[in-house]
Write a protein that binds this DNA or RNA. Sequence first.
DNA 1: TGTTTACACTAGCGCTTGCTTGGTTACTGT
DNA 2: ACAGTAACCAAGCAAGCGCTAGTGTAAACA
Lengths: 191, 191
Amino acid sequence: MNVMNASPRRKELTRLAAQLFVQEGFDRTTVRMLAQEMGIKSGSLFHHFKDKQEILAAVIEEGTQNALAIAKRALDESPPSPEARLRAMARAHLETLFTDRNAHVVALFEWRRLDDSAKAHLSHLRDAYEALWVQVIEESLAAGLIHGDRFLITRFILGALNWTVRWYDPAGPRTPDDLAEELIAMIMPAR
Amino acid sequence: MNVMNASPRRKELTRLAAQLFVQEGFDRTTVRMLAQEMGIKSGSLFHHFKDKQEILAAVIEEGTQNALAIAKRALDESPPSPEARLRAMARAHLETLFTDRNAHVVALFEWRRLDDSAKAHLSHLRDAYEALWVQVIEESLAAGLIHGDRFLITRFILGALNWTVRWYDPAGPRTPDDLAEELIAMIMPAR
DNA sequence: TGTTTACACTAGCGCTTGCTTGGTTACTGT
DNA sequence: ACAGTAACCAAGCAAGCGCTAGTGTAAACA
């Protein structure tokens, strides 16, 4: 087997796997389907990945790392005001869903299929991403921009954003920025 | 096979199935697991249900019907003010998640596993439930209680509420009513 | 030039899956 | 007493599953 490196071939395979996992779900996606999508036979798959689990972990790792990178960059480029930073995070979240939708959806809805060791490894990445949100929300609370329970507000906002993958249509009239704008407006009292 | 009636035995089996579907997911729940949980052999299962799909449909139908009934009752018993009705809907939604969690979670996360005909049949129920939300939100908009895009606000609120199944712990310090209170406070400007 | 490495193939093993079949038991109304 | 019926069981089939073993080949490296 190839070592667990990030060969370009492996990256492409991961991208294709993400697409299939979204279409069919992890359990219903067979190694034969994955292989066919990749233009090889099912046996050859195990040259690139130790087992099916590892493909899932690779998909989720890439998606989360991507989301983290985009969010960090958005915060760096944002004006320092709490409101601007809040808006930047919401935009970044939805931008990820737009450009890297497959991996993100898999991360959200197939997380429980990971085995324990993969979960342990990847939950750090996830926590790092959530920590960005907690920080930005705390700044907004401190500035009196929003009010309420820090924990609940974080969950509600992330819930509203994550759920967008269930109904948002990129081909529709609304841009991701429209959504971000509306969400911020909804949670900020009187402006 | 038993006709598709609602025999008491079938109801109990549906309840147990919901629990397993939540624990393991639909695909990973085998008919043998279901049968064992029910204290019968796997073959006997097909006396009560035509196939595995039908079990899923039964679970989702019951869950949605329950949610609809609870929400309707909550609205009937609520004071007529838009704010009270909004709060009543949020409470009802979370109450459903608390008392009938399994069926609700299955409805949310295993919907795609339904075949087309079941989807067509059940989506009417789903739409009826969402219509209640749209109505209440429209009343709040008309009363100037909240502002913004009707469609987006509905989606954001339902997203935030649905996502609670991912983190809310009924054994924790917060009651469902606490959550409802906080959510309403979050989206209502200045009070 | 000879050796290694990356990548793919063929073939199939051992197991699990959803579901069927044919028969048995216990109860119910006539 | 007897037919009908709901509920179950034992046994197993056909298909599909993840994964392995052994081999071939072309390019890269020594």
